[in-house]
Amino acid sequence: MASLTNINPSSTDLVRRKKRFSVSSTASSRSSAASASTGDGESHARWRSEKQQRIYSAKLIQALQQVRLNSPSATSSSPTAQKRGKAVREAADRALAVSARGRTLWSRAILANRIKLKFRKHKRQRASTTAIPAMTTVVSSSSSSRSRKRRVSVLRLNKKSLPAVNRKVRVLGRLVPGCGKQSVPVILEEATDYIQALEMQVRAMNSLVELLSSYSTSGSAPPPI
């Protein structure tokens, strides 16, 4: 009797667990699309962690080594040196996108950039279907604004400021990779994540420059053995 009641719950539990797994996996696959409405703070805090910077630095060094192998001996003649700098920049950005693990639109856009030419037509079609004219509806909903107590530090929107805000969001969308044709909430969410990723990128690259230049200066005057 006892064994019977023991078996039954465990089997249903297994089924439930399976179901939960499938639900959570589909939820995470479209989390970035839905993130605009939820606005999670934790994923952004990720970029501030030392661990994330270490992960990025390792990927960056790997990418730099690749650049070095692919374009050897640039003798500081301006065109090749410029090309090299650009290659480093692209490698650094790709490493950043990989560190983001494809959770955001901007990182997926950077990774897709390499094959953009090939699939440009296809991509544009898809982008146009996802583009949503978001801000046009804000005006109508503002008439029924509730007066809730909020801890925000931004002025309320009014009809006069709306066109300027709209325009600036569009400009912002062009600065964040892959967000040129996204809706307003998506652009704002992505920008929030992207800025913190960029800050981390600058920190990591800075410390790498410092490390390398400390070696190259000490190397110019080798210590006597």
């Binding site: 606005g39 909020r150 931004v154 309320r156 307003v184 909430p185 998506v186 704002l188 800025i195």
Partner: peptide
């Protein structure tokens, strides 16, 4: 879900913008 994301309220907008402000 997608329609609720496109119809952003003033409150949501201000929330998102004040998150940006902190950065």
């Amino acid at each position: 879900q997608s329609s609720s994301a496109s119809r952003i309220s003033d409150d949501q907008m201000i929330d998102l913008v004040s998150k940006l402000r902190q950065l």
